[in-house]
Design a protein around this nucleic acid. Structure first.
Lengths: 220, 220
DNA sequence: CCTGGTCGAACAAGCGATTGGGCGCACCCG
DNA sequence: CGGGTGCGCCCAATCGCTTGTTCGACCAGG
């Protein structure tokens, strides 16, 4: 129990894992005010990263004072935790859906790529934070689950690539792990310049990338 | 390491050996000590980024107090400036060398890719900083030259890609600018997991990437 | 009255930066 | 040879500011 202070027994019901179900009679809302604040924070994280965003930034964006934030969250970390956890939950579910479809490896990889690109817009903040503040988060036990989830994701991709090689769909002279990393990095890093509503939407990007990834940039 | 250091004299200074020859009154400003400090700072920047690294971190790594750093540098920014400027100078020179060789577009792109991967090891700090703190640096007039250099680099790549398309070496249905960005980002972002001395060195990475980029992962 | 939400003020810790002084060494002049 | 001087390098202390966080008071509305 090193964890964060946790002192001053605020009956906060803990920010612990279990998704909030309707608790007791009043208010189905897990506080829509709170949700709104998370969205505001996410926008700032997406712009500048987690460490570079101050609680006063967030509060100002919401039109309140920094201290008031602590009525809704018990720390700045718990805000980003909520964002990251939601992201991983969603993407892993989507990934598993593709795997369960059981198409050929080429279709599987294409599916994974499309999903990943699809998260670019709704999960800008989480992706930005993971890129900018990964090493910082890794130094905190609280976020150890991130590495675990990332490992699981890597396994999905690598297995699909290997399956493709075994089926002679993908060339045998590429390194599955290395190839996965390159695909992953190429997709996530796009969060830096991708702006929704631009010339190309996320799926357009995905199509463009799939072309290049499967067949290369050479003419044939 | 607060140790009751005997304040007087130079108890530490371990690493450094060779108090070297005398260099008359007017040194070229390239003090050895200073260079050493820049390297230490670079290592920290490479680990955590620029903003996340404090001057006290740097000083501690060098076994001195933070104030002492200001005998060598006039600000934390000037340290990173030195690192970034050196990086751009080197890579742009190398890029121009490839262009001047005047090979076909395919050879040119391959050359650029190899150079970029080659900087991964010696310029980890600069690349990390550019990824983590780009927007922060951009907000300071002092670092406006970064955007300028980046534009020039982009032009080199895009021109080479376009030339390849005109010569029917690269497929016409890829977007040159988009393709450049993906190549660039994929290479630089590798700085996050690339560790010198690992299974693959930088040139091995480059070769693998060129294979995939030119011909894709499909079998043919 | 209770409860959710906020203010306003403060806190300790840490930040980049500045200052003045002191040490020890290489050098020069006598 | 020896005392003086300049300089590279560092310490110690401190400045003004920002950080995340705490906490009592207050104010609405059901």
């Amino acid at each position: 129990m090193t964890s964060t202070s946790t002192n001053s027994g605020r009956p906060k019901a803990a920010a612990e894992g279990a998704p909030r179900r309707r608790s007791r009679g009043s208010t189905a809302l897990a506080s829509e005010r709170r949700e709104h604040l998370v969205r505001l924070a996410a926008d700032l994280f997406a712009e500048k990263g987690f460490q570079a965003t101050t609680v006063r930034n967030i509060a100002e964006e919401a039109g309140i004072l920094s201290g008031s934030l602590y009525h809704h969250f018990d720390s700045k970390e718990s805000i980003v935790d909520e964002i990251l956890a939601g992201f991983f939950e969603e993407i892993m579910t989507a990934y598993r859906g593709v795997l369960d479809e059981g198409g050929d490896p080429r279709a599987t990889i294409a599916g994974l790529v499309r999903i990943a690109f699809g998260t670019l817009e709704p999960h800008r903040a989480a992706i930005t934070v993971m890129q900018n503040d990964w090493s910082y988060l890794q130094s905190m036990p609280r976020f150890a689950y991130l590495a675990k989830s990332e490992d699981e994701v890597e396994k999905m991709w690598v297995d699909a690539i290997r399956a493709g090689q075994d089926a002679d769909l993908f060339r045998a002279d590429i390194d599955p792990k290395l190839t996965y990393r390159m695909i992953r990095d190429t997709i996530w890093v796009a969060v830096r310049w991708f702006k929704p509503g631009g010339r190309l939407d996320a799926q357009g990007l995905a199509d463009h990338y799939l072309k290049v990834m499967f067949d290369g940039i050479n003419t044939h």
